[in-house]
Nucleic acid binder design. Structure first.
Lengths: 346, 346
DNA sequence: TTGTATGCGTTATCAA
DNA sequence: TTGATAACGCATACAA
C-alpha cells in the first residue's frame, strides 16, 4: 500500500513551495524552465498525479462528464448500440484527461433529479437515447450544466445534439427497394415519440411519395426482434401482403424475416426486407441484411467533443450534429450478390 | 442557472451551524430529532445535496467505483455481455449511493497506470474480462485499493472475483450432447489465457473422459462468430468430421453453424451444436441454440456488493463468487422441441 | 444537543 | 520567478 503523495511532499523534496509545484504541473506561467523540468521529472519518477478531488474543489472543474442512459435502453437491442456510442465518448474524453461517470434513469418521479448532478460530480452531461423524459431533459438544460443529447432531440426546443442521417438513410434504403420494382412497401417502426422512428418514417414516406405510391405503417412499442416478429405477422396475415418491408432497425428487420418464414414466404423472393443500424450480425443473418450503416463510435466522439467545447465556453449557440450514414447492400433486399456487401453511394 | 447551495446556506436559513446541518444530513448522532427533521425538510425543499467533491476531500471516500474494461472487450461479441454486467454493477452501486466511473485499458505500456487510480477518483475497482494484463491486475491489487475481478481470475494469486459455473455449465451441455448418443464431439474455444475458455474446456474434457471418449479441441484468438466460422471450416474439412461441436460461447456456436451449412451439413441433423452465454439472439437463431445461460446482471451486482464490502472493511479474506448457470435446451443440439425452450436441471 | 475551529489537497491571489 | 496564504465545501474533534 503506497502512501498517498501530495503536492506538499513533492515540494518538500525539492525545497520549493507547493504553489510552484502546482504551477509547474499545470503548465502555468511563473516557473523557470529549469525548475519546471525538475518538478516534472520528480513527479514522473514518483508516479505522482494531483488528487482530482482536491483539484475539483479548488478549481471548479471535476474533470468528469456523466453519460446518462435510460434503463430500458440496456436490453433493447441485440446489439450494443449505446455501448458503442459510450465507447466513442470514453475515447474522446480520455484524450482530454476527462472521465466518464455512467448513470441511468427510469421513469419514476425520483428519476427527475439526477443524483450525479445534485452532488455536482460532473462538468457536463451526455444524454443518450430517445427514452429519456423530455421534462427531465428540459430541467437539466435549464440547470446550466452543459448538455448534449445523442440519438435524441427535443421537438420544439433547440439543444445541442448528435444524430445520424435518419431520414436520408431510410430514404436511400427505401429508394433502393423501389429500384427493385417493388410497389407495395410497408414501414415497421417503434414509438413515434422516438425521433429516430419519426425521421426514418419520414424518409420512407418521402421516397414513397416521390414514387407516387401509397404506404402502410405499423408501429410497435419497442424495436426488438420480437416486436418485428409481431409486426410481420400482422402484415403477412392479410390478403394484400406487402412485397417489401422497411424496418426501422435491424432487430425489427430480423423479426420481420422470421414472420415471413412463418407465413411460408421466402426472403427476398417473396418479401424483401431492409433495416437500419448495421448491427454486427446483420452481415451474417440469413439472408444477409441490406441496411443503413451508422457509425456509433463517431457519434459518441462527436458528442464528447461538443460537450468539452461547451464546458470550455458555456455561451455557444445550440447546434445539431448529423453523422453520415451509408447504405449497405446485401441480399435481403433482393440483390443477388456474390455474398459480398456493397457500399452504395446515395 | 440555479445558484449552487452550500451547507452554509442551509445553516444560515435555519439559524444553526454548518456542523449541525452536516450531522443531520449524514444521519449522525448529536442532533435533536426535531432539528434533524427541519434540516432535512429544508434540504429536500431546496433540492439540496452536499457537494460530493467537498465531501470526498473532507471524508476520504469518493463515493465512486471504477469499472475497467479492456478496449478489445467492446466489439468482441455481438451481445453486450459486459454491458449487462455493468448494468448490474450500476444498479447495485446506485442503491448504496455510489457512482460508477467507466474506464478502459489497452495493452500499451502507458496503460499500466490507470489515470483514474492515480488521480484518486475512486474507492475501489471492478476489472471486467479476461483481457486485462495480469501484471496490471497484480500491481493494482498491491496498491491497496479494493478490487474485484469479473469473468477473470489470476492463476496463482487469490483475489476477489466473480465468475460463473464455467466448468459445470459446459460439462452439463456436453453431457446433454452425449445423451443424444453423439460420440465424436469437438470443442471450439478462444485463447487459453482466458479463464472462461480453460474452465469450459475442462468441463468438456471431464464429460468426454467420463464417457470414455476422446476429444478434439480447436482454439481461436478471439471468440467471435467469424472465429467460430473459421474453426468450423477447419473441423468440417477433414474426413472424420465431428458429429457435434461444443463452442465456448454462442457467437462461436453461430459461426460453427454457418460453417456446417457451407459444408452442406444440416444442423442438427448432421452436426449438432451447443454454446454458452445464452445471448439474446440465441433463442432466435436457426435453429434455436442450445446453450448455457449465465445471468450477467447478477454477476455485476455481486461484484459491486463485494466491492462495497471491501471498501467498508479492507481486511477481508479473498473470495471467489461463482454464479449458477442453467442449461437451456433448444433445437441446435438435436432435441425436437415444440419450439419452446426448456430449462434443464443438471 | 449545539457551536467553534481545524484539516482535507489543491489552485489562485497577492506580496516579495 | 517564487512563496505565503486564503479560499473551495464539507466532516469532525473538541469545547461549550
Amino acid at each position: 500500500m503506497q502512501a498517498k503523495l501530495r503536492i506538499k511532499d513533492i515540494a518538500e523534496q525539492l525545497g520549493v513551495s507547493t504553489a510552484t509545484v502546482s504551477r509547474a504541473l499545470n503548465d502555468k506561467p511563473g516557473v523557470s524552465d529549469d525548475l519546471r523540468q525538475q518538478v516534472r521529472k520528480l513527479a514522473a519518477d514518483l508516479d505522482f498525479a494531483p488528487s482530482m478531488v482536491a483539484r475539483s474543489l479548488a478549481g471548479a472543474r471535476t474533470g468528469a462528464v456523466a453519460f446518462i442512459l435510460h434503463r430500458q435502453a440496456f436490453p433493447v437491442s441485440s446489439d450494443p448500440f449505446y455501448f458503442l456510442i459510450m465507447q466513442g465518448v470514453e475515447r474522446e474524453l480520455d484524450r482530454a484527461g476527462y472521465h466518464i461517470v455512467m448513470s441511468t434513469v427510469g421513469n419514476q418521479p425520483e428519476d427527475n433529479n439526477l443524483r450525479v448532478v445534485r452532488e455536482r460530480r460532473v462538468d457536463g452531461l451526455i444524454l443518450a437515447g430517445p427514452d429519456i423524459n423530455p421534462s427531465l431533459v428540459l430541467s437539466l438544460s435549464r440547470s446550466g450544466l452543459p448538455l448534449v443529447l445523442v440519438d435524441n432531440a427535443l421537438e420544439r426546443t433547440p439543444l445541442n445534439c448528435v444524430l445520424c442521417e435518419d431520414c436520408e438513410g431510410a430514404r436511400s434504403a427505401v429508394e433502393h427497394l423501389l429500384g427493385h420494382g417493388y410497389k407495395q412497401i410497408s414501414f415497421v417502426g417503434g414509438p413515434t415519440s422516438w425521433l429516430s422512428t419519426r425521421e426514418r418514417q419520414k424518409g420512407y414516406e418521402c421516397a414513397m411519395r416521390d414514387a407516387g405510391l401509397p404506404g402502410t405503417v405499423v408501429h410497435e412499442k419497442v424495436t426488438t426482434m420480437e416486436a418485428g416478429l409481431a409486426a410481420g405477422r400482422q402484415l403477412f396475415a392479410g390478403k394484400d401482403r406487402p412485397r417489401a418491408v422497411y424496418a426501422v432497425n435491424d432487430a425489427m428487420a430480423m423479426g420481420v424475416i422470421r414472420a415471413a418464414r412463418e407465413a411460408g414466404l421466402a426472403v427476398p423472393a417473396d418479401v424483401a426486407v431492409a433495416g437500419f443500424d448495421d448491427v454486427s450480425i446483420a452481415a451474417s443473418t440469413d439472408p444477409p441484411l441490406t441496411t443503413v450503416r451508422v457509425n456509433k463510435e463517431i457519434m459518441g466522439e462527436l458528442a464528447a467533443r461538443r460537450l468539452l467545447e461547451l464546458i470550455g465556453d458555456e455561451q455557444q449557440p445550440h447546434c445539431r450534429i448529423i453523422v453520415e450514414t451509408t447504405l449497405i447492400i446485401r441480399q435481403s433486399c433482393g440483390c443477388v450478390g456474390s455474398g459480398e456487401e456493397v457500399e452504395s453511394g446515395k
